[in-house]
Design a protein around this nucleic acid. Sequence first.
DNA 1: TTTTCCATGTAACTCGTTACATGATTTC
DNA 2: GAAATCATGTAACGAGTTACATGGAAAA
Lengths: 179, 179
Amino acid sequence: MERELLLLGLLRQGESYGYELHQFIESNLSFCTDLKKPTAYYLLDKMENEGWITQEDEQVGNRPTRRVYRMQPEGERAFQTMLRQALAEYTPATFAGDVGIAFLDAVDPTEAPRLLGRRRGQLTAALQAAQQVPPHAGSLQLVVEHQVRHLQAELDWLDEVISRVESHPPDTDQPQQTR
Amino acid sequence: MERELLLLGLLRQGESYGYELHQFIESNLSFCTDLKKPTAYYLLDKMENEGWITQEDEQVGNRPTRRVYRMQPEGERAFQTMLRQALAEYTPATFAGDVGIAFLDAVDPTEAPRLLGRRRGQLTAALQAAQQVPPHAGSLQLVVEHQVRHLQAELDWLDEVISRVESHPPDTDQPQQTR
DNA sequence: TTTTCCATGTAACTCGTTACATGATTTC
DNA sequence: GAAATCATGTAACGAGTTACATGGAAAA
């Protein structure tokens, strides 16, 4: 549902076509959704069938034909409904990476910092990337700021974990019966 | 892959069966993975076929038969490999809820705080729940702390968004052409 | 001249979920 | 007596991804 909301929200501020929409999402909104090209095309087609948007083929120069979509009143209504639902609902983020952390004490305490160091590198790269995103108009900027904040918090926490592992070597790794 | 890692990590600290594993995950680790029962059974069966774990049926009293799984050397090796990979890799969290935020200026500034207020309620509930999780052994505790930290950061940010919307009414909502 | 970009699409597939089925047993 | 718990599983489905195909134009 977020994906449809996203496409509608973008189409709302101006007609566009699959390729362009996908490009924009990939380069500007990669953190909140990653929507592959086939998915974009599929959803646009579906929303056209539902009467939310209309399509019209457009040829510019001798570039490939673009299938340009335009918002319809039905689509605006759907957008407003979905938007309200999305805003009022808290969707918890899931941290797949935490599964590894949960078993951190299963690796040698001399090896753990090296592994986490690599993770840290990727995290700082993500943070820098987010910090260098050019300012966006209106509430899109909020999303960028959210991301920066989040990544900073992640980095703080990871550093704490690393220093804890380095200083206070976790207890031995004798898997013990729990039942 | 995280799911297999998780199951192996749990089995590593003591034999168990599908139902129990699922229970434990659902009540203790719901934030980092949500693994449904059929998925758990499926993965356990699969890992048994791969020789990572062995199964044995066990009857306690006249309760339904339990299919108890035990770690094998092959499984321990797989666990160690996957664990290192998981620790060294940063998997960015995706914020589905941000899609709504991105189009926040499309709703009436008098309505927005009410919608976000509902979201805030769910967020504080999640935070309280996380804060009340009883302390876990070893590095599992790190995951709980991570979650608490994250939720606090989320709450801070959301409050900022709300107060910003309340004070500084966002610009009018005239969808404008971008092309 | 080879690669990348533009632009759309299809078909197969994977992973995971939902919904359902079973059946005894304990709790309300 | 009804409902929830324990315990396992199957079958169908769905959303989204991967991999592939096309074909001209621009850039390297």
